[in-house]
Simulated scan of single mutants.
Amino acid sequence: MTSHTTAQVLRYTAFSSDPAGGNPAGVVLDARGLDDAAMLALAAEIGYSETAFLTAAPEHAGGTPGRVFDARYFSPKAEVPFCGHATVATAVALAERIGPGDLLFHTPAGPVPVSVTDDGTGAPQATLTSVEPQVTDVEDADVAEALAALGWQAAELDPALPPRIANAGARHLVLAAAGRARLADLDYDFERLARLMRRLDLTTLQLVWRESETVFHVRDPFPVGGVVEDPATGAAAAAFGAYLRELGAITADARLTLHQGHDLGRPSTLTVDVRAGDPRIRVSGTAVPLP
C-alpha cells in the first residue's frame, strides 16, 4: 500500500486566473495504492476544502483511452460524492500534461464529462457537465433551523427564490437573501449548522443574492467538511442552475455568472450554462497552479 506521504500532490486554484483568488484544491493524478484512510489523511494534511484523487479507468469505461479516470474527492473530514472546483482544477492539471480536449471522470455521483480548452492566455478553461440534477422541497422546520444557525430571519429571504434542496452530484440547501448586505454578513453557529447538514446529508448551503436576471452572488458554508466557507463551489453552482430552471426563474437557455469568494478576499467567477432539452448543467471556469 502506498503511503500518503509519498503521493505526489499538485495544488491548483479553480475559478480564477489569479493564484490569490479562486478555491484551492489538492490534486493527486496517480492515486494507485492509496486506500480510503490514506486519501482522507492526505486531504486533512493538505487542508483545502477538497482534494481530488485520480486513477486511470479500465479501457472498457468509455471515452477516449488515456483520458478516462476514476475520481474521488475528500475534504479534511470526509469523502464527498462530487466536487466541482477540484474537478476543474484536476482537469486543467491533466490538460497541462496530456493536452487540452475531452476527459471523462467516473465519480461516486456518476460520470462527469469535462472539456478543457486553452486559448494560449495561460489560464486554461474547463467545462464540466453535471450528472442529471434533482430539486426537492425542504421541510419548513429544517429551513427554520438553518436560519437559526445562520442568525438570519425569514423576513430577510427573497420570496421569489424559495428554499429548496438541489443536487447535481451533491446535495445543497439553497437559501436566497433579499439583499447583498445580508449575504455579506455571515457569522454562523458552526456546530449547529453542521448537525443539521449531517442530518439532511448536505454538502454545503448555497446562499445567494440575485443582482440581475443572470448575475448572482453566492456563499457556501461547509462546516461538514471542516471548512468555515468555500470560496468557489462548482457542485453547488450546477445544483443552483437546476434549481433556477425548476422554479422557472430563468429562460430555457441561460448563461449565468456566479460571483463567489469576494467576501473572503478570494474572488471567484463561475459560469453556469443551462440548455433547453438537456437536464444536465454545465459549469465552467479557469484554474491555475498555486506557487
Rank of each mutant, 00 (worst) to 15 (best):
E211S: 14
G241F: 02
A287R: 04
G101K: 03
T136S: 14
Y188L: 08
Q8P: 02
M197I: 10
S212W: 04
P223L: 07
A86R: 10
T90Q: 08
L290I: 06
P159N: 08
R266F: 01
I281T: 12
V80M: 08
V208D: 13
I250P: 05
G277S: 07
V274K: 07
W152D: 13
P108D: 04
G261A: 06
A38L: 06
V272C: 09
G151Q: 08
V227W: 03
E156T: 13
D230S: 09
D30L: 02
R199M: 02
A38C: 07
A7N: 09
S49W: 01
F82M: 15
C83S: 14
V138G: 08
E132N: 04
A56E: 15
G225R: 04
H85F: 03
L173A: 06
T269R: 14
A37D: 15
A86L: 10
Y12D: 10
A176C: 13
L264G: 08
L10E: 15
A91R: 05
E96H: 02
Q125T: 15
A242L: 05
G285N: 11
V218D: 12
P162T: 12
V131Q: 02
D137T: 14
A91H: 04
G62N: 13
L157G: 09
L29E: 11
R180N: 10
P65Q: 10
V112E: 08
E132H: 01
H262Q: 14
G33L: 07
H172E: 07
G248D: 10
L103P: 06
G101V: 05
V227H: 07
G62A: 14
